[in-house]
Amino acid sequence: MKAPKQSRHGHLVGALAFVAGALSAGAAAPAYAVLGGQPMTAPQGASSTSTNAVARAAVASGASNASSTSAVNYTVRTTTLASGTVVNEYLSTEGVVFGIAWHGPRVPDLASLLGSYFPQYQEGLKAQRAARGGRGPVSVQGSGLVVDSGGHMGSFAGSAYLPQSLPAGVSASDIQ
């Protein structure tokens, strides 16, 4: 018995199913930092540099002769993605990501970077776009999440951080 001939449509459907399967298998490959979670595992094609400990002076308030103590209270880990975009992760002494900054030719996958904070970002972005239109830099300022992003084709930069998780002596301007 002869197998029935497949129409062009049948070949197209089969090819599309194959491509969709290949894409979904590759979709799990990128792994980024998750704000409020663990640092990223460098995705395929990315390179990471060693962590750099950063010391900030914590100054006692209210004293006229304020003394300062120096302690390492966060580290910065830099990863260059295959796209050329550089992502800096800011980790607390417990190893939790409290801030992320990026710059390069492409905006990184913010859904992966922001993790469970991504819906909050989307809501803030939607409100901002409704208020002033769909173009221009993004600035989402919430009590639990701050995201600033902007740029133009080939040159983007931004940052995201959790205000409540900033270590003592660390300010928003330190996340760059």
Rank of each mutant, 00 (worst) to 15 (best):
V34G: 10
L35F: 05
V34H: 11
K5L: 11
G142S: 13
A60G: 05
P108M: 07
A157Q: 12
S92W: 04
V96E: 13
V86T: 15
S116C: 04
V54Q: 10
V97R: 11
V97L: 11
F98T: 08
A42F: 11
L162F: 02
V86E: 10
F18I: 14
L81W: 02
V147K: 08
T49L: 15
S70G: 08
V97P: 11
S173R: 11
F98Q: 08
V146I: 12
V170A: 04
G151E: 02
S47M: 12
Q44K: 11
V138D: 05
P163L: 03
Y121L: 02
G169S: 11
L114K: 13
G36K: 05
R8F: 11
R77K: 14
G144Q: 15
V34A: 14
A29L: 13
L125T: 01
Y121G: 03
R56V: 14
V138K: 02
Y90A: 06
V72Y: 04
L23I: 01
G150L: 00
G154L: 00
G10H: 09
V147I: 06
L91F: 08
A53T: 09
Q6K: 11
S50M: 10
L110A: 13
H9A: 09
Y74R: 09
N73F: 05
S165E: 12
A31E: 14
L114Q: 10
S24D: 06
